[in-house]
């Protein structure tokens, strides 16, 4: 029985790996889209908005299959791990775009005006003044998205990536002990999400700007 649990636990590395690919990829793409939406002009903003609507309107597993089975093989020949992780990243980028564009907006137009007033170009203002403040504002909602991506990483089981959920299924089939098998999986996911949230809470505290009350 112990060896069985080792088998499930080994899937943790893959779960973490999938998350470590999809989350940053989603961030890079989501931030670019958020910048395009807020600063890119009317048509670019509309395109970004349509992308967001589409990606958030379809269940991630459906998008996973579309991206994996239809795109790869004809266009790109990606392994299940990369196809699954990038597909998840693409889905996440839409949600991250929404978080980040809200954060960018929250920074306020005044900051941009003040930056332009000392002669900064629009891009310099975005880079040095707006984005650094927006990122701080985005940490709490982003922490939520990170948890979601971690849990959604289980969806790559459908592509055959040997992560925690798939292993739990195999275990359940072999041992006929579904509660133990899936319970172990649930415990692993819970611990991962808990640790991630704690880490991000710590980050939010650390990057908080001092006020007169501190």
């Amino acid at each position: 029985m112990n060896q069985f649990f080792t088998y499930i636990a080994q899937g943790t590395f893959i779960t973490i790996a999938v998350t470590l690919v999809s989350l940053p990829f989603g961030l890079a793409l989501g931030l670019s889209l958020a910048l395009v939406y807020n600063y890119g002009g009317r048509w670019a903003a509309r395109a970004a908005g349509a992308y967001s609507l589409l990606m958030r309107g379809v269940p991630p597993i459906v998008l996973l299959f579309i991206l994996y089975f239809i795109l790869s093989g004809r266009l790109l020949n990606l392994s299940p791990f990369w196809a699954g992780s990038l597909a998840l990243g693409i889905v996440s980028s839409a949600y991250q775009m929404e978080i980040l564009r809200g954060a960018l907006q929250s920074v306020g137009g005044g900051q941009m005006v003040a930056a332009r007033a000392i002669g900064m170009s629009r891009w310099q203002a975005i880079q040095h003044i707006i984005v650094p403040q927006a990122v701080r504002l985005a940490i709490p909602p982003w922490s939520n998205e990170a948890s979601i991506v971690l849990k959604d990483s289980s969806l790559v089981y459908a592509l055959g990536v040997p992560e925690v959920l798939r292993r739990a299924q195999q275990l359940s089939a072999t041992t006929q002990q579904p509660f133990l098998a899936f319970g172990a999986a649930a415990l692993i996911y819970f611990v991962l999400v808990f640790l991630t949230n704690r880490a991000l809470d710590w980050l939010a505290e650390k990057t908080k700007l001092p006020t007169q009350h501190t």
């Binding site: 005044g110 900051q111 005006v113 003040a114 007033a117 003044i129 650094p132 403040q133 701080r136 700007l209």
Partner: peptide, 12 residues
């Protein structure tokens, strides 16, 4: 140089 009513210092 411009100075604004709301100061508009860079908060970060």
């Amino acid at each position: 140089g411009m100075v604004f009513q709301n100061f508009l210092l860079f908060n970060h």
